[in-house]
Computed example of a mutant assay.
Amino acid sequence: MELQVNGHRAYAYTGGKPFDATKPTAVFIHGVLNDHSVWILQSRWFAHHGWNVLAVDLPGHCRSDGTPPATVEAAAEFVLALLDAAGVARAALVGHSFGSLIALEAAARAPERVTHLALVGTAYPMAVSPALLDSALNAPQKAIDMVNAFSHSMLAPPPSSLGPGTWLMGGSRALMRRVLASNTAVNVFHTGFKACNDYAGGEAAMAKVRCPVLFLLGSADQMTPPRATKALRDLAPGARVVTVKAGHALMSEAPDAVLFALRDFLVS
């Protein structure tokens, strides 16, 4: 599905079903150097079980035009503008990593428009090491290898979201190379990491959230360790916390566990 958002074409995957603004809507927001495809299993399940799905490509990524958001705040404004363009008054927001900060900030800016907030593989602060920031800018292929080593709990996880015969780390590296190559004007890798590293509004944002909150975390996550959610969890005492056996790439390493956690949270 293509929408005009802030004067630019924005792409959102709908899970193979026609979009119907009268149904409940879930917006899935990817992380740095990813696109809508990281949500393939989860988005398709919701689309085939009575939900609208908008699994977005952020601006300047893959099938979406425009300038890649340089801040979490700018990305949150894009998400709210996307809802306007789709004619959706209220939606559940599901974000992974960078996307979780975007979802959090959007829920704070327009609490009346967000029914549920699911923070997947999140942390606050979401600090990025100087070495990784430098590599993302000056040696992105090296940084891609580093991120994938940190994002997966093992070199060869059991068959999961893509089925037998696939290699999750290899597939993730290929996706990141493709997303990086999709924008020749801006390094979306460094831009996204810097936005994560610079974001200082997490605690203020969580204090403004008025909807149910889910923290969906990977027990072996080295990029955003579960302990790094404490600052946000302390401000959301009623939040649900689910930890699955996976690394940072938990949607692909533990796709069923992630799906069931989201289903139980959004459908309850």
Rank of each mutant, 00 (worst) to 15 (best):
1 M>S: 03
2 E>K: 13
6 N>Y: 03
7 G>F: 09
7 G>N: 10
10 A>P: 00
11 Y>L: 09
12 A>M: 14
13 Y>F: 13
14 T>V: 08
16 G>M: 01
16 G>E: 03
21 A>I: 03
21 A>S: 14
21 A>F: 00
26 A>T: 12
27 V>L: 03
27 V>H: 03
27 V>W: 00
28 F>V: 13
28 F>S: 08
29 I>V: 15
30 H>D: 14
31 G>Y: 02
31 G>Q: 05
32 V>G: 08
40 I>A: 14
40 I>C: 12
41 L>K: 07
44 R>F: 11
49 H>Q: 07
51 W>R: 04
51 W>T: 07
55 A>I: 14
55 A>H: 06
56 V>Q: 07
62 C>G: 01
62 C>I: 15
62 C>P: 01
65 D>K: 07
69 P>I: 12
70 A>I: 08
71 T>L: 02
72 V>N: 00
72 V>C: 14
76 A>L: 06
76 A>H: 06
81 A>W: 11
88 V>W: 02
92 A>F: 10
94 V>R: 04
95 G>I: 11
99 G>A: 11
100 S>D: 04
106 A>D: 00
111 P>Y: 10
115 T>K: 04
115 T>L: 15
116 H>I: 00
116 H>T: 13
118 A>K: 09
119 L>A: 10
121 G>F: 06
122 T>Q: 01
122 T>I: 05
123 A>G: 15
124 Y>N: 06
132 L>Q: 09
132 L>E: 02
134 D>G: 11
136 A>Q: 05
136 A>T: 06
137 L>V: 06
142 K>Q: 15
146 M>Q: 15
148 N>Y: 08
148 N>C: 13
148 N>F: 07
150 F>L: 15
152 H>E: 05
153 S>H: 02
153 S>C: 03
153 S>I: 05
154 M>P: 01
155 L>P: 07
160 S>L: 11
163 G>C: 05
164 P>S: 08
169 M>V: 15
170 G>E: 05
172 S>E: 00
172 S>L: 09
174 A>F: 07
179 V>C: 12
180 L>E: 10
180 L>D: 07
181 A>M: 04
182 S>E: 05
185 A>L: 09
185 A>C: 01
188 V>W: 02
189 F>T: 05
190 H>G: 02
193 F>R: 06
193 F>G: 03
195 A>L: 07
195 A>C: 04
195 A>G: 11
196 C>V: 01
196 C>Y: 02
198 D>R: 12
200 A>K: 11
202 G>D: 08
202 G>I: 01
203 E>T: 14
205 A>E: 08
205 A>G: 01
207 A>R: 12
209 V>H: 12
211 C>S: 15
214 L>S: 03
217 L>F: 11
218 G>R: 09
218 G>C: 10
220 A>Y: 04
220 A>H: 15
223 M>L: 09
228 A>W: 02
229 T>Y: 05
231 A>H: 11
232 L>P: 14
233 R>M: 08
233 R>E: 12
237 P>K: 15
237 P>D: 14
241 V>Q: 15
241 V>H: 06
242 V>D: 00
246 A>Y: 05
247 G>F: 13
247 G>P: 03
250 L>Y: 00
252 S>P: 00
253 E>M: 10
258 V>P: 02
260 F>Q: 13
260 F>H: 13
264 D>F: 13
264 D>N: 07
